[in-house]
Nucleic acid binder design. Structure first.
Length: 757
DNA sequence: TTTTACTTCGTTTTT
DNA sequence: CGAAGTAAAA
């Protein structure tokens, strides 16, 4: 049993509890992956359970890959028989075998967000829906939420009766699903939903998988949505050997449909469940854990638990506030330089985390200036680059001719003189005949309405037909090269934009490299398989460890990772917690943000730095933000002292901004909280002045504001309220106030005449 | 049909 | 501010 000696008592208990439902509440850094892998090894080696009967489900490919690797190392024989997959890849394996039972073709395509948008657009066009009144994002959001909750088109229509806009959503939902089916495509949500549908429609198929997967583990269980819960419930329904691992305090995907009730109510669903709590943390210092515990303690309705460590208290948590986001980024970059110069840290041990992707740009610029090697996780996904999407759309068209979205993308790339007019004709014909766009193109020359455009279309149809013939004997990489040559794609890129052509071609080469590595590693490589692989990569999957770079990423991406040195940037009310969550009347929205803060804090092993800026540019406006309430929730004895903000060239701008420039040394952040002190904001000419590049434009307005975000104010009509937002506009300030009685209002400062109380 | 110049609009978070 | 979408011109 030497293998299991390194585990603590609770961990051992979790490893040995193999039969029946089991809930492992695993706090951050409590070694849950170790428990999961040991548990699988224990089942196989000690209990004699066949690897064939084990299913382990995670959320990201990265997590699945790591678990697979560790299981392979630990289990002597048959480890490859264990399914270690993400929800999506597991469902896809099942659907590729059986989806014909639901009337789809087994070679179905997978639609990403862009594809979904394109579908919504055509749906709105066909249904004559004004996309100004009904935003695509909103429509897609409604559809996605419905699917997360397993609400079918029919149910949605039923529930929508009497509600006009819901009825519109219902119509769009129906048409959207019909379009997907016609295109032989599934979106991300469908991958789960259709598997559940399949199991419901075909009990014998469900039974075969129940027999196969007698032992099921689900990681990150707090992130499961209703559809995923139902899937797991069905699969485990027969043998009930279901082990779920999660931490309700790390549930941060509500917006994606994650239902925190799945974990909170696990014991109701499975009354005989064994519950094991893992509270010993092996990652962070006590100070960091104390801070995390203090913050998360403000949430109600959570499973009570408290992390502890046998490590020492470690350094205090650092906190710095800056005048603007540039200085914040500069500080972080220089601090990293300092740490690495000392020889204490390597770049790869540092991570900078933030709430929104938009914050990455500024930080990135600073990293470049200081010569720090870095990687930004996410942001513009490799697979969403124009040139990559073009090539993929060709491959998709070859793979699945019914995929209208792919065809539309490439029909005029490179230019073939096919514009909206031609496309509309084809679309009208295809819609009337119930065929696909490509189907319409194939028969164009023998259709009167299309005969005029048939000539333009022909080369495209011939190219695809020829490529399709080749696709059976070529590897994906060879097929891509063939296409590039036939299309003169390099030339097209050059014409499109000569400056970027080289970079873009490099991206295409990278795609080819990925195709080659797919072909070498896949069990039975195919074009369909490659496209599937590509569709399912998450941002975090592409992170390579060990190349010694500072990682820049969102807090969401950081979940599950750990770093010795962590910077939490943009700790500002309105940014983090987000404006939406502060303004929301649903308190659980703010609690979710707090869990995100908890996730962020607990990423740090040794050293945690929190930073914020008094002002920052947000879509062309200067926003003034108060220090994040989450910073204030940390007891001040855990924080280091606040040193004065480094002042340099920016100094004179203080006159414009009227910022309090008194030294802040030796004052703890709780006391310095910006919102506690009024500042007077005066109009400034432009951001350039802020940066010290004066254009000689004097201050334009004389608006003076005597309150800040977070302050209590009084309005002559609406009464008392709290300032939620303060945004500078060309000649006034836009103030958002949450009034105690009148609710939330947005108004101009010069009219509102608010008084601070 | 394609290019250009202008307006509008938005920011959470992502498998 | 920048992307993306729309209207007008070529």
């Amino acid at each position: 049993m030497g293998l299991y000696d390194a585990l603590n008592k609770e961990q051992k208990k979790a490893v040995c509890q193999v039969e029946g439902p089991l809930l492992i509440l695993a706090g951050a850094g409590s070694g849950k992956t170790r428990v999961l892998t040991h548990r699988i090894a224990y089942m196989i080696d000690e209990m004699g359970i066949s690897p064939w009967n084990i299913l382990a489900i995670t959320f990201t490919n990265k997590a699945a890959g790591e678990m697979r690797e560790r299981v392979d190392r630990m289990v002597e024989f048959g480890a490859d028989q264990v399914w270690v997959l993400t929800f999506h890849s597991a469902c896809l394996r099942i659907l590729r075998r059986h989806i014909d039972r639901l009337g789809f073709d087994n070679g179905f395509a997978i639609y990403d967000t862009d594809d979904q948008k394109a579908v919504i657009k055509t749906v709105c066009k066909h249904l004559n829906i004004d996309t100004k009144a009904y935003k695509e994002r909103t429509l897609l959001g409604a559809i996605s939420s419905a699917k997360d909750e397993l609400i079918s088109v029919e149910e949605y229509a039923m529930k929508a009766q009497g509600d006009y806009s819901k009825a519109v959503y219902a119509k769009v939902y129906r048409e959207y699903q019909d379009t997907l089916k016609k295109n032989n495509a599934l979106d991300f949500d469908d991958i789960i939903v259709k598997t559940v549908e399949l199991f419901k429609a075909c009990p014998e198929i469900l039974d075969s998988y129940q027999e196969r997967f007698r032992y099921i583990c689900v990681d990150e269980y707090q992130d499961t949505n209703t559809a995923q819960f139902e899937l797991v419930r069905m699969l485990a329904g027969k043998y009930r050997n279901l082990c779920v691992v999660g931490d309700d305090d790390q549930s941060i995907y509500k917006f994606r449909g994650a239902n925190i009730k799945n974990i909170l109510d696990f014991e109701q669903h499975f009354p005989d469940a064994v519950v094991i709590k893992l509270e010993q943390n092996y990652r962070s210092t006590q100070s960091i854990l104390d801070a995390a515990n203090a913050v998360i303690g403000n949430n109600v309705g959570r499973k009570d638990k408290s992390l502890w460590t046998s490590k020492g208290s470690g350094d205090r948590i650092h906190f710095r506030q800056f005048d603007n986001a540039y200085e914040e980024a500069e500080y972080i970059a220089r601090d990293i330089v300092k740490k690495t110069k000392n020889g204490n840290a390597s770049y790869g041990e540092c991570a900078v985390l933030f709430r929104t992707n938009a914050q990455a740009r500024l930080l990135e610029e600073r990293m470049i200036m200081e010569g720090i090697p870095y990687n930004v996780v996410g942001g513009t996904n490799f697979y969403s680059r124009m040139e990559v999407k073009d090539v993929l759309a060709y491959l998709k068209t070859i793979d699945n001719a019914r995929d209208d979205v792919a065809v539309k993308r490439i029909i005029n790339v490179p230019k073939r003189g096919i514009g909206n007019a031609t496309l509309d004709k084809l679309d009208a014909y295809a819609f009337a005949e119930g065929t696909s766009l490509y189907g319409a193109m194939e028969v164009a020359k023998s259709v009167d309405a299309l005969s005029k455009v048939a000539g333009k279309i022909r080369p495209f149809v011939e190219l695809i037909a020829e490529a399709r013939r080749h696709s059976t004997e070529m590897t994906v990489a060879e097929l891509i090269r063939y296409l590039l040559e036939q299309l003169n794609y390099a030339e097209y890129l050059e014409e499109y934009d000569s400056d970027s052509a080289e970079d873009r071609m490099e991206n295409v080469e990278e795609l080819i490299a990925k195709a080659i590595s797919y072909w070498e590693n896949a069990e039975s490589p195919s074009l369909t398989g490659f496209l599937e692989d590509v569709a399912l990569v998450a941002d975090i999957d592409t992170v390579e460890d060990g190349d010694n770079r500072v990682l820049l990423m969102t807090l969401h991406s950081a979940k599950g990772l750990e770093f010795p040195y962590v910077y939490l940037s943009g700790m500002e009310d309105g940014l983090f917690p987000s404006f939406m969550s502060i303004a929301s009347d649903d308190v659980t929205d703010l609690e979710e943000e707090r869990r995100l803060a908890y996730v962020g804090i607990t990423r740090a092993m040794e050293d945690l730095t929190m930073t914020c800026a008094k002002s920052r540019m947000t879509h062309g406006e200067i926003q003034y933000n108060a220090i994040s309430r989450f910073v204030r929730e940390i007891p001040s004895d855990l924080m280091d002292e606040v040193v004065p903000t480094p002042k340099k060239k920016i100094d004179f701008a203080d006159d414009y901004l009227g910022f309090d420039t008194r030294p802040r040394a030796t004052v703890r952040p709780k006391v310095t909280a910006q919102a506690d002190k009024p500042f007077i904001a005066k109009g400034i000419g432009s951001l350039n002045q802020l940066a010290g590049i004066s254009k000689g434009v004097p201050a334009q307005t004389d608006t003076e504001i005597h309150y800040a975000v977070g302050d209590r104010v009084k309005h002559i009509k609406f009464g008392e309220g709290t300032v939620l937002g303060l945004v500078r506009e060309p000649r006034d300030y836009k103030v958002t106030v949450d009034f105690d009685n009148a609710g939330q209002k947005i108004m101009y400062a010069s009219f509102a005449k608010l008084k601070k109380i």
